[in-house]
Simulated scan of single mutants.
Amino acid sequence: MSSQLNDAMESLIKVFYSYSVKEGDKYKLSNAELRTLLQEELSDFLAASKDPAVVEKIMKDLDENEDGEVDFQEFVVLVAALTVACNEFFVDLIKENCKGRK
């Protein structure tokens, strides 16, 4: 039986490659593949942003080697940053709820 963390890592890898194989280099996300991934997998985060150029900004920020594509390592940086942001939000929410009970 695999662990929850192992399953999460496997899911992350599967999601990346399910989008990256659609065009061009199967080991990297093109701008279009990244846009589709974000729209289908992280639509709540995109909806929170009112900036129509948010995907292009994300691509620019992630594409450290400036090759116009996002490899798996660059993609994981995005997932980690979003995970940290979610954690901070929930920690703050828990702290606020605890203060309200005093």
Rank of each mutant, 00 (worst) to 15 (best):
V91E: 10
K50N: 10
D67V: 07
I58D: 08
E66L: 11
E96G: 12
N65I: 01
K95W: 00
L62H: 07
V79Q: 05
F90P: 04
I94G: 02
V76P: 01
L82V: 03
Q73R: 10
L46M: 04
C98P: 05
Q73D: 11
E56N: 14
V70S: 05
V91P: 14
F45N: 09
E74I: 02
F75L: 03
E74G: 01
N65Y: 04
L93G: 10
D92Y: 03
C86I: 03
K57W: 02
E96R: 15
D44A: 10
K57S: 13
F89A: 02
F89C: 01
F72R: 05
A53P: 00
N87K: 10
F45T: 13
V84R: 11
D92W: 09
V76S: 04
V70Y: 09
F75K: 11
K60F: 05
N65W: 02
A48D: 14
I94P: 00
F75A: 04
E69K: 10
A48W: 14
E64H: 08
E66Y: 03
V70A: 03
A81C: 05
L78T: 03
A48Y: 15
D61A: 14
S43Q: 15
F45S: 04
T83P: 09
E64C: 05
V54T: 15
A80I: 01
D44W: 04
F72K: 05
A53R: 15
L93S: 13
N65K: 06
E56H: 11
S49C: 11
E88R: 03
M59S: 09
V70Q: 08
E66R: 10
D92S: 11
E74F: 01
V76Q: 06
N97P: 01
D63T: 00
V77M: 13
V54N: 03
E74N: 01
A85F: 10
V55S: 12
A53K: 15
E74S: 00
E56V: 00
E96T: 14
E69H: 09
D44N: 15
N87M: 07
E88A: 09
C98K: 15
V84C: 07
F90V: 11
T83Q: 02
L46I: 10
F72W: 01
I94S: 10
I94E: 08
E96K: 15
